[in-house]
Design a protein around this nucleic acid. Structure first.
Lengths: 206, 206
DNA sequence: GCATTTTTTGACCGAAAGGTCAAACTTTTT
DNA sequence: AAAAAGTTTGACCTTTCGGTCAAAAAATGC
């Protein structure tokens, strides 16, 4: 008789990482203790330090995974095919999808940005996205002033990310869960509409 | 000889509040200890508890002052005079000015929103702003769907507040301080341009 | 001047934090 | 089966936290 059950050994390191991921997103770095993480992972506290050398280390790992996933998710959208309009819409689409799939991420980034000692990690990951937008928009926006590409970068990314970071608040003002699939689809449509409004005003001829 | 020097007694309660204000904005609630606050206020730690009953209490006071100032700053812009376009621009103007004058506030709100147990304080203060936008836009937007007023509320407020919350990050991507007066003026012009783009697409006839 | 009230201090408390470590337990290698 | 390597545990350490309190100091009323 062959083994019918795959007797998987528990991967403690992974369980700890997942517990840390959940808790950091829920309560923030300072709001979580290593004891909390150990408890959720159903593991002895000492074990956390066997696999990860410190709390800060564990946090950075959780963060780095998200940033990497984010970069990968957007990488395909960077492909320079189609018109500017198509490319931007594709970017927005990828960005919204990633946020919808990784709702914890928005909260994590927000907390990270809120820290004044802005980690070089976040910088390193956002810089490429920034550069892309600037170069993509360079043909249609001004080099400087209120219509400079850099303003549209903030505006575009804000349109997407703000919805998710403010979701807990929106939840209390609207009726219905803003993170439900239909609501997110609605926001997606809104952002696309906004992109069109901006592009139309930037170059009415096209 | 009359008293030439106004020998002002130090207002300890006020000094403590100011120190707490600074530190909470810099490092967040959890990142600051009562010892830190006492040290910055150059006051004995015990005194903090003489004037304020707890750390949470002190934080709420700092927060409440900002919310009140915010509400007051926007109150005049609520006046229902002029066209919709004028009213919205006036609102944006007031909002931007308040943010420029109270740059700490953006960071405080962000930290507050980041906490999952979103305080009823922030809710109570944002609700009126939300209601006003909804009713102001009701004539020109859809009742539901991607062009519902509620989406534009998030979009508008994001346009303003995002610039300030992300300023530390922008600082590292741009050249030049995003919180300098000229830069803020530029963002202000950008947001006004955005408002026009939106309104034009919403009702092209007008 | 004295008595009373209001401020201010420094020493102290228990709880909880991040982190260490030697010993016990499992698994793998030989 | 024994030895070696890799895991897991619980007890323990130091530091820091929010908060208390009795006593000292300063201001006030009479």
């Amino acid at each position: 008789m062959a083994r019918t059950k795959e007797k998987k050994r528990r991967d403690r390191a992974e369980e700890i990482r997942e517990a840390a991921d959940q808790l950091f997103c829920e309560k923030g770095y300072d709001g979580v203790s290593m004891r909390d993480i150990a408890e959720r992972a159903q593991v002895n506290k000492g074990l956390l330090f066997y696999y990860y050398k410190s709390k800060a280390d564990l946090f950075e790992l959780v963060l780095a995974r998200y940033y990497e996933a984010h970069r990968e998710a957007l990488a395909s959208a960077f492909a320079a095919e189609g018109t500017l309009r198509e490319r931007i819409h594709r970017m927005i689409e990828a960005y919204m999808s990633f946020m919808a799939d990784n709702q914890r991420y928005a909260r994590l980034v927000q907390q990270q940005v809120a820290e004044l000692e802005t980690h070089e990690l976040i910088q390193r990951n956002l810089a490429p996205l920034f550069e892309w937008t600037i170069s993509a928009l360079s043909g249609v926006t001004d080099a400087n002033g209120p219509l400079a590409a850099r303003h549209f970068w903030i505006t575009f990314s804000g349109l997407v990310i703000n919805y998710f970071t403010y979701a807990p608040l929106i939840d209390k003002l609207w009726s219905g869960d803003p993170l439900a699939a239909e609501q997110i689809a609605e926001r997606r449509a809104h952002v696309h509409w906004m992109v069109d409004a901006i592009l139309e005003k930037l170059s009415p001829a096209e």
